[in-house]
């Protein structure tokens, strides 16, 4: 009786999961495995030839330029995630504490940027930050700048645009976790002589860690793999690994080396987020 129920359950599970597993296997796992294979090709051109070689990995790690770009990419990812957290937490928290009616149109404002094509967003920023753009005109008009300055093609510009793009993910993750924290817990803390700051540190923050972590992971992964923004906003002067891979594959047609870089990014990104999650989890989970 129990046995057959269990069997029926697992059958349902299989049926429910099959479409997703097939989709992921066909369009994600297989291509990634293909990419992995091609990163070991000795060729430096298209995906021709056979053989096995570590030369692309050796090339990546022996040239300090590439490893410095890798480090830079990670630092950028961390900065973007942290800034998103600093801006996104208060926003997500206050959204969560609104009534659902009051939340509705504010949510639309948060989500709207995600519905625009990334290219449109980036061109919008080009108009704002360009030499004859909005910001330069304004600053010159106000007398803050004596002549237009180059605001584009700098690392801060790239980081600002990345923050703008990925902020909604942080806001939504924080909001969803804070809606799970019942406001009566804040009142209880307050009754137990905790001021707003202590309540935040000892009650809200620990309970919000899962949402913060989700938001942080999403923003971090999206940032380190960004390529359109660094290319268009940062130009040739700002190198992030994503745009470097794009360049290598699309301009130089060097698929194997591009694949190798993609794999380095993939593995190191994964290792970093797993380590971060483990660290935070061990710090914030209670024994019990």
């Amino acid at each position: 009786m129990k046995q057959s129920l269990l069997k029926r359950r697992s059958l349902t599970l299989v049926i429910l999961l099959t479409p997703m597993v097939l989709l992921l296997a066909g369009f994600l796992v297989l291509p990634v495995l293909g990419l992995l294979r091609s990163s070991f090709l000795p060729s430096t051109h298209l995906l021709d030839g056979t053989g096995f070689s570590l030369k692309h990995y050796v090339h990546f790690f022996s040239d300090t330029y590439y490893s410095s770009v890798l480090v830079e990419t990670f630092v950028d990812g961390l900065i973007v995630s942290l800034v998103c957290l600093l801006i996104g937490f208060p926003t997500g928290y206050s959204l969560a504490r609104l009534t659902s009616a009051a939340r509705r149109w504010r949510m639309i404002v948060v989500i709207l940027p995600l519905t625009l094509s990334l290219v449109v967003v980036v061109f919008g920023w080009l108009i704002i930050l360009g030499r004859n753009g909005l910001l330069n005109s304004l600053f010159v008009y106000l007398g803050i700048f004596s002549s237009p300055k180059t605001l584009l093609f700098s690392r801060p510009a790239v980081l600002i645009v990345l923050v703008q793009q990925f902020l909604p993910f942080m806001i939504l993750s924080v909001m969803s976790v804070v809606t799970q924290i019942h406001p009566v817990l804040e009142q209880a803390a307050s009754n137990l002589r905790a001021n707003r700051f202590v309540t935040f540190r000892k009650v809200i923050l620990p309970l919000a860690v899962p949402g913060i972590l989700v938001g942080f992971n999403i923003v971090f992964v999206l940032s380190i793999s960004a390529f359109i923004t660094p290319r268009l906003i940062g130009g040739a002067r700002v190198a992030m690994l994503g745009s470097l891979i794009y360049e290598t594959i699309m301009a130089q047609l060097n698929w194997p080396f591009g694949a190798a870089m993609a794999f380095v990014l993939f593995v190191s990104g994964l290792a970093f987020t797993v380590a971060l999650n483990a660290l935070v989890a061990s710090r914030f989970t209670v024994r019990g």
Partner: peptide, 22 residues
């Protein structure tokens, strides 16, 4: 005065124990 300056101890209807603390 805010609640944390008042010398009261409250038992909430839902108990409001902190779920992440023992």
């Amino acid at each position: 005065q805010p609640p944390y300056r008042r010398d009261t101890g409250m038992v909430f209807q839902s108990y409001a124990l902190f779920p992440h603390m023992t």
